[in-house]
Design a protein around this nucleic acid. Structure first.
Lengths: 249, 249
DNA sequence: AATATATTTGCATTTAATTGCAGTTTTAGA
DNA sequence: TCTAAAACTGCAATTAAATGCAAATATATT
């Protein structure tokens, strides 16, 4: 039996039942478990199914909801959030963007810290409501299905009417030359408004996003007052960013 | 049984009933309570549900404990939500209030129905984002910690600028004489704005709230175009409400 | 067709993940 | 405050995954 043929059969099986056990497949296809495992691994790498411990599930069945990937690089995000929190004082007025790093910031806010927090992110808002000393104001707008943030003209207009002490923002990509960039045009427009709504913009960014870029530009690096990564400020990976007038924490 | 499969089943169960006991899950899935506990812990870390002592609750019902009867009368709320959905047409523009009955409405919206939905409720917004054919607009404002809705002047102002086909609202108390009443002053102000933001106001209200009142008045009954309860319209409990010019479903 | 080369497959071994259980600590609710 | 139920911890047994290697099979080239 050809590999091609076998993988086709595996895909059919997965599509049909949404889940498959490697042992069942091996049995049905008369090959060893190792072989099906390798097949499934390949199919997974081609994003045709999702490999899980003991078997595979169809793409539709897999839980890759917007919230799902949160666990990724959590320790780094926690480190970043802690540095960001050190900037805050009682009665600070801040604005928190969407994204998993910003969500981590919201989660880790000390319960005794008195704050006024604006946000455009639904998950961040949920977290903020759990903090007894935080007054939370949600910036309304059209909600984006995958990033779960307010966007569009009404969000941008609402943002144009505020000026907070700090905005904490995330970004898809950052580069010394191209600055902050994103995959999505609407997101860029919204982030611009977020940055303009603050006296100081603080970028929260895990180091693996450094030196990467995409289609649309949010702003140049020099618009960012402070950049926080999980690295020590003297880490060599950060040296290209030191020529800018952005503080690095 | 695959772990993925089990976690999927757990999520389904939580979505369906809003709450779930670990012991019940263990029983149903034929695994130990420890295993279920570990699964639920993972799902919680991925923000797909909220783990609580003894079980788990859906994201919308966070803050409530599973044993406590805050999610009570679910079947009645489902019945009400279904009647409300029957009013909707493709391309309807609606506004959904907070509260558990309205949340149930959001959950049960058919996935093929094209809608534009405004809402002031964080949990409702979360649910709406899961509907592929619903455009969701969140009305910004100061968030209330316990009701998880936008309130205050900016929410009221934003509401003053829209006029949707239907608003679906909940209430704390309702009475033929005093109309709709609430415990909280700010909530009343917001609900007034919600009602004004719609051509037709639809009250979703389980029968046990009938003939009860509290401090602050939202509006008289005759401001409400349609009142939906879980009862049949000819039920004797509804007779006192029939003298009004409110349609009863 | 024959040979050389590359790929695929199965097996043994090591490594890692999952699960249930027992004992202890913590929690919720009376 | 007290008590029963639930959560956590460490542990052992089971099961799956990864790795290296040799045999088998497929592919390409002459």
């Amino acid at each position: 039996m050809l590999k091609e043929e076998r993988q086709h059969a595996i895909l059919n099986e997965v599509e049909l039942h949404n889940k498959v056990l490697l042992t069942d497949l091996a049995d049905k296809l008369n090959v060893s478990v190792d072989t099906v495992r390798r097949d499934v691994k390949e199919l997974d790498e081609e994003n045709l199914l999702v490999k899980v411990h003991g078997g595979a599930v169809s793409l539709g069945f897999a839980n890759h909801s917007p919230q799902r990937n949160n666990v990724y690089a959590l320790d780094k995000k926690v480190a970043i959030a802690k540095k960001a929190i050190a900037l805050l004082r009682n009665n600070s007025v801040i604005l928190i963007d969407g994204g998993t790093t910003c969500l981590e910031l919201a989660k880790l806010l000390p319960t005794n810290l008195k704050l006024t927090c604006f946000t455009i992110s639904l998950p961040v808002a949920m977290e903020l409501l759990r903090k007894p000393n935080v007054e939370t104001i949600f910036i309304g707008g059209t909600l984006s299905r995958d990033s779960q943030i307010s966007m569009g003209p009404s969000a941008i207009h609402a943002l144009s009417e505020i000026k907070v002490d700090y905005s904490f923002i995330g970004t898809g990509y950052v580069d010394t030359e191209f600055g902050l960039t994103e995959f999505d045009w609407d997101v860029v427009q919204t982030k611009k408004a977020v940055i303009n709504a603050s006296k100081k913009a603080v970028l929260l960014c895990i180091s693996e996003k450094l030196n990467s870029q995409h289609r649309f530009k949010t702003c140049s690096l020099n618009v960012i007052n402070t950049m926080i990564t999980e690295l020590e400020p003297w880490d060599t990976k950060l040296t290209p960013f030191k020529n800018q007038n952005t503080q690095i924490l």
